Simulated scan of single mutants.
Amino acid sequence: MARRTIDGRTALDRSGVAAHLRVAYTTVNNWHRHRTRFGFPDGFTYDGAEWFWLNDIDRFHTAHLKAKRAELTKVDRRGRPDDLVGSGTAAKILGYRSYRNLPDTLYNQPDRIQQLADGRVRRLWFRRTVWAVADARTGRQSTGRTPGTTGARKPHPYADDPRLQAALALLTEVGTSGQNRRGLGVELARRLGVGERTAQRLLTQARLVADGPPDNTPQATAPPTGTAHPTPTAHTATARSRRMPGQPGARP
């Protein structure tokens, strides 16, 4: 039971709150556990169950989203919308210190690509594209697993990614031909149509897969040839031979 009418008003239980706001159940639990910090409304008990008024939940969520947006970096709106900018300028527009902080939704989808003389590529975006990405931000990710993502743990993020096979094939191709491995990220990015950072991550994982997991199993060490471990009988006999005269069991 997720929703019911009580005294003419709509009430939700925790499952109902998660479904209504389209968040994970664990996120609702986190909001409730830290309701003083988040401002999550107090519930009430009815028929032995915990409920929350729908109107209170809607007011909370509106305020919560507004607070998250307030935490975002300030966007630089100066310049003409059709100006092309590089990754460094795009980062400054979004208020980031480095281009490494650019979101993948922007970095992997440039408006223009400029091929440099050394084989690298330069990504360019219109200012309006950067502004659109900034306006689509919603703030920091809420605590809790996204609905529907619970499942078996993968050995690595690219376990089921077909692009990993392309990265492995490229490494094999270069290793067989004896080519220089420099610029592999650019080549893989070109073949797959992805960003260079994504290609580098794929290559890193492909190398780990190709090398295989390290064998840390301890190996038993055999004693040197001709060395025999003393048997319990021999050990007992030796102990008896060391007893002092006058002790029980000592030889006269």
Rank of each mutant, 00 (worst) to 15 (best):
R3Q: 10
R3H: 05
R4E: 00
R9I: 09
A11D: 08
A11Q: 10
L12Y: 13
D13V: 09
D13A: 06
S15K: 14
G16Y: 03
A18Q: 08
L21C: 03
L21E: 00
R22L: 01
V23M: 00
V23S: 00
T27F: 05
N29R: 14
N29K: 12
R33L: 10
H34R: 12
F40S: 03
P41N: 01
P41K: 02
P41H: 02
G43T: 04
G43I: 02
F44V: 03
T45S: 14
W53R: 12
D56Q: 10
D56H: 12
R59I: 08
F60H: 08
T62H: 10
T62Y: 03
T62W: 03
A67V: 01
K68C: 03
L72K: 08
D83T: 15
L84Y: 09
L84P: 02
V85Q: 04
G86P: 06
G86F: 03
S87W: 01
G88Q: 10
T89Q: 13
T89C: 02
K92Q: 12
R97T: 04
R100Q: 07
N101W: 03
L102C: 03
P103E: 00
D104R: 12
T105I: 13
L106M: 06
N108T: 09
N108P: 03
I113F: 01
Q114H: 15
L116D: 13
L116C: 14
A117W: 10
D118F: 02
V121I: 13
L124H: 09
W131M: 11
A132I: 01
A132Q: 14
A134I: 09
T138E: 13
Q141T: 12
R145C: 00
P147E: 03
T150S: 07
T150L: 04
A152I: 08
P155D: 08
H156N: 13
P157N: 12
D160Q: 07
P162I: 02
R163C: 01
R163K: 08
Q165C: 00
L168N: 01
A169M: 05
L170K: 10
E173R: 15
V174S: 06
G178L: 05
G178N: 05
Q179I: 00
R182H: 11
L184K: 05
G185F: 05
E187K: 13
A189L: 11
R190D: 14
R190V: 04
G195T: 01
R197K: 11
R201A: 12
R207F: 03
V209F: 06
A210Y: 00
A210R: 15
A210N: 11
D211R: 15
G212F: 07
G212K: 05
G212S: 04
P213R: 14
P214M: 02
P218L: 02
A220E: 03
T221L: 12
P223A: 14
T225Q: 07
A228G: 01
P230V: 07
P230F: 00
P232N: 02
T233W: 05
A237E: 13
T238N: 14
T238R: 15
T238Q: 15
A239H: 13
S241N: 11
S241M: 11
R242S: 07
R242T: 04
M244V: 11
M244S: 14
P245K: 11
G249P: 04
R251S: 10
R251Q: 09
P252V: 06
